[in-house]
Computed example of a mutant assay.
Amino acid sequence: MTNRIALALGFLVIAALVVDVSLYGTQHLIFLSKKMLELIEWIAFWR
């Protein structure tokens, strides 16, 4: 992955988070963060 692609993906994720927080508040963000941590732990276990 080149630096340009990594930066574009990073900006895309940040923009999506900003839109989500501005439209729906922070409750969805907290839920998604908890689920992402569970997924990372599950993947780390099977690695």
Rank of each mutant, 00 (worst) to 15 (best):
M36D: 02
W46C: 06
T2A: 04
K34L: 15
I14G: 00
I30G: 02
I5T: 13
A44E: 14
F45W: 03
K35I: 06
E41M: 00
E38V: 02
R47Y: 11
K34A: 13
L23H: 01
G10D: 00
L23T: 03
Q27S: 13
V21C: 00
D20Y: 02
T2D: 14
L7I: 07
L39I: 10
I40Q: 09
L32E: 13
A44L: 03
W42L: 04
S33K: 03
E38L: 09
K34T: 09
A6M: 10
I40R: 08
R47H: 10
I30D: 01
I5H: 09
I40V: 15
A15Y: 02
W46E: 07
F11M: 10
M1W: 09
E41C: 03
L17A: 09
T2G: 15
I40S: 12
L32R: 12
K35H: 02
V18I: 10
K35L: 11
H28A: 11
I14K: 03
L39M: 06
L23V: 02
S22F: 11
E41T: 00
Q27H: 08
M36R: 14
A15T: 05
K35F: 00
Y24Q: 11
W46T: 11
V13H: 06
L29Y: 10
L12I: 10
V13W: 02
A8N: 08
V21R: 05
L12Q: 07
L37Y: 02
A6R: 15
E41G: 02
E38W: 09
F45P: 03
A8D: 09
V13D: 07
Y24F: 15
M1R: 05
R4P: 00
L29P: 01
K34P: 03
Q27C: 04
M1G: 15
L29G: 01
I30H: 03
H28C: 04
L17C: 12
L29E: 05
